[in-house]
Design a binder for these strands. Structure first.
Length: 212
DNA sequence: ATTGGTCTTGTATTTACGTCA
DNA sequence: ACTGACGTAAATACAAGACCA
């Protein structure tokens, strides 16, 4: 799966961005000039640009004839479809019929366009989420590294005796261990340093914002 | 300039699944 | 409970243009 920079320029997440897929994008502009500019409105109206076989359930001739030609939507058709998609991501039969009449397409073609459009939206969203999670992971890894380094430093600068007394008992405990207080049954400390100075509060690490 | 291979994009089909009457 | 119609998502096929060596 690869998405070109041109297509990612018109991302649509849950925030609705004016849909400008394919035909109106910078990179895709050239692609639709040829075929789509050929037919006039009359050609579309008369169905002379109908490139699909009469039997639209079967794109191929029964006698093994030439396969269907590929339909390319005009810019205007794409724009109208995008507009309607922005209003509604699914169509009821009535809307489908109306839109198809308006676009001089078959309802089935409108339906297929919406199916594919939904799929593209979902793909974009998944890619965005993936990117977000990657950045998040990177950020957390950095933070983890910093914290581990800080722990090492704290251990290194520890000048006191290698053991520490808990507040409730006089049993010496090795430094840097989690201890459960036998009386109140709570974890009392994680490191020897924490016993004296409270929980470690990393100064360098701030809550990271990943959005934007 | 052109040619052939590969990539990308967009439309269409197939298949599987869920819902509803 | 079973069934058929219908709608949708996901996977896939395929045509056609873009790109590049």
């Amino acid at each position: 799966m690869a998405v070109s920079p041109t297509s990612s320029a018109c991302l649509e997440l849950t925030i609705s961005v004016p849909g400008t897929f394919a035909s109106s994008g910078e990179g895709g502009a050239m692609r639709d000039l040829d075929i789509n500019q050929v037919p006039s409105e009359e050609e579309w109206a008369t169905g002379s640009m109908e490139l699909i076989e009469e039997d639209d359930q079967n794109p191929y001739n029964n006698d093994g004839g030439p396969p269907r030609k590929k339909l390319r939507l005009t810019k205007q058709q794409s724009r109208l479809l995008e507009e309607s998609f922005r209003q509604n991501h699914t169509l009821n039969p009535k809307q489908k019929e109306t839109l198809a009449m308006e676009l001089k397409l078959k309802p089935r073609q409108v339906e297929v366009w919406f199916q594919n459009r939904r799929a593209r939206s979902k793909l974009k969203q998944t890619e965005m989420e993936c990117e977000y999670l990657k950045r998040w992971f990177g950020s957390l890894s950095e933070q983890n590294k910093r914290l581990q380094k800080e722990v090492e430093e704290l251990r290194a600068i520890k000048v006191g005796p290698p053991t520490v007394m808990t507040s409730h008992s006089c049993e010496p405990l090795p430094a840097s261990t989690l201890t459960m207080c036998p009386q109140c049954e709570r974890v009392t400390t994680t490191t020897a340093q924490a016993n004296f100075a409270g929980p470690i509060r990393p100064t360098a690490s701030k809550p990271t914002t990943l959005a934007g």
